[in-house]
Write a protein that binds this DNA or RNA. Structure first.
Length: 300
DNA sequence: AATTCGTGGTC
DNA sequence: TGACCAAGAAT
């Protein structure tokens, strides 16, 4: 007997509407799942699909990844965005190789300790790759619960304790069912209960949805600030790193000057790239992608 | 707790 | 066309 009238329709909907994604196949390795989750952080599925296949083809295991240079991870990352993720994924592979015998850990706390693995990704890998029972709260699930349970169009800006409690209350007791529930609610948010233009007519829980029953009131809260991009340090960093990625060897300062004219911002961005370990300055004044393992600050 | 961190597609 | 958005993490 389900804990909530939401369970049966959502699980039934998922059974016939789930996308066939590589990292969901029965033979997908935990490493494949982990790589997919890191790539999917703030990056759409359509862009992750080819990148994930290429990544797993090149580095089928954490040990294969750790044996290669971190700069190669940055290069292979291509244009997925947020390239520090590539560096952290390489660092995670190194930790997995040294501390976990080359096997992705199944324990939430051990996953959470890996570089670049936060609350969401640790829960997602433990749940999807190992069938463990965890609250998996991503932007999709938060939006589904905000609407279906709380009757509002969008969840709060940051995840709250109330949201976690709601999600835990709804989480099925059996680990295998909890894992299916987690991926099913995510998929519902991704395909039907979308941020803009939700397809309520196709929703399996439209009759129970508190938001729809309330007449779909518009979002009434603080305006979430939009992120500008043109002219920012982020755009500048992106331009600079693209030069490094597409070069076969070290690049000169003039190579970098060619893609960003404003000198002070360019130097500042370059400094932060070096500080992040994404770029290595050489003694002769040129720059390259990192060859040695980056040092991550120890956690006190 | 509020900021920072890429990139490209959509309506 | 430009604002919005896409399976967050780290600080």
């Amino acid at each position: 007997m389900p804990k909530s009238p939401l369970h049966t329709p959502v699980l039934a909907w998922y059974a016939t509407n789930a996308r066939d994604l590589p990292w969901r196949r029965p033979d997908a390795s935990p490493w494949s799942v982990l790589v997919s989750e890191v790539m999917l952080q703030q990056t759409p599925v359509s862009r992750v699909l080819p990148a994930h296949a290429a990544w797993l083809g090149r580095w089928p295991t954490p040990r294969a990844q750790a044996a290669d240079q971190p700069g190669e991870a940055v290069r292979q990352w291509g244009r997925l965005g947020y390239p520090r993720r590539a560096l952290r994924l390489h660092a995670a592979a190194t930790t997995i190789s040294r501390r976990h015998g080359g096997e992705v850990p199944s324990d939430y706390d051990e996953l959470r300790d890996l570089p670049g693995i936060g609350d969401y990704t640790a829960a997602a890998v433990a749940s999807f790759a190992f069938g463990r029972r965890h609250v998996v709260l991503d932007t999709n699930v938060r939006r589904v619960f905000a609407r279906a349970v709380d009757g509002v169009q969008y969840p709060p800006t940051a995840t709250t304790a109330v949201e976690r409690r709601t999600a835990l209350t709804l989480l099925p007791d059996e680990p295998a069912t909890a894992a299916r529930w987690a991926v099913a609610t995510m998929e519902l948010g991704a395909l039907v209960c979308t941020a803009a233009g939700p397809r309520c007519a196709d929703c399996p829980i439209r009759r129970q949805c508190a938001w729809r029953l309330a007449g779909q009131p518009a979002y009434d809260g603080p305006p979430r600030r939009r992120q500008s991009y043109d002219g920012t340090d982020r755009q500048c960093r992106g331009r600079l790193l693209r030069v490094l990625r597409e070069a076969s060897g070290p690049v000169t300062r003039s190579d970098l000057e060619a893609v960003w004219s404003a000198a002070p911002q360019r130097e500042r961005a370059l400094d932060t790239l070096v500080a992040d370990g994404l770029v290595e300055p050489l003694a002769d004044g040129t720059f390259r992608l990192p060859v040695s393992a980056p040092v991550f600050p120890p956690t006190p």
